[in-house]
Amino acid sequence: MKYTGSCHCGNIKFEAEGEIASALACNCSICQRKGSLLWFVPRTQMQLLTPEEHAKAYLFNQHKIAHRFCPHCGIHPYAEATAPDGTPTAAINLRCIEGIDLAAIPVHHHDGRAI
């Protein structure tokens, strides 16, 4: 299935294709503060509908994950990293996807603080 999403102001828009079977809630220092519910897809399954330079990146700790955010409204719609198998991956914030029922998606909790 194809989903569309954006930041709050629409400066960053994207489409993602796949099956949302579950979400991940992480308690690391940044995810805890953002409150994101993450859906991971290969980066090839996510297409930006706005220019890539509209999104700024925040890197911290080991600088392995580019946390993308809108410099206008501050919303973090996705992050980019490399999966353990080497696949470029997008971690999409499900709270930025239009028209889905978040209450119907099972959430797995990840102890990111322990890493």
Rank of each mutant, 00 (worst) to 15 (best):
C9A: 05
C9K: 10
C9G: 08
G10M: 02
N11R: 11
N11H: 07
N11G: 03
K13S: 00
E15G: 06
E15N: 03
E17I: 00
E17C: 10
E17T: 07
E19Y: 01
I20N: 00
I20E: 00
A21M: 07
A21Q: 05
L24D: 04
N27A: 13
N27V: 00
C28S: 11
S29H: 03
S29M: 09
I30T: 09
R33Y: 15
R33H: 14
K34T: 12
W39D: 12
W39K: 06
F40M: 06
Q45T: 08
L48S: 02
L49V: 03
P51N: 02
P51Q: 01
E53W: 08
A55F: 01
A55N: 00
Y58K: 03
F60Y: 14
F60K: 11
N61S: 07
Q62S: 04
Q62R: 09
H63Q: 10
H63I: 13
H63M: 10
A66L: 14
A66D: 13
A66Q: 07
F69C: 07
F69Q: 01
F69S: 06
F69G: 04
F69P: 06
F69K: 00
C70E: 02
P71C: 02
P71I: 10
H72L: 12
C73F: 11
C73K: 01
H76K: 15
Y78H: 11
A79W: 11
E80L: 11
E80R: 02
A81I: 03
T82M: 02
P84F: 08
D85W: 14
A91W: 12
I92R: 00
I92C: 01
N93Q: 09
L94A: 03
C96E: 03
C96G: 10
I97W: 09
E98L: 10
E98M: 08
E98I: 08
E98Q: 12
G99Q: 03
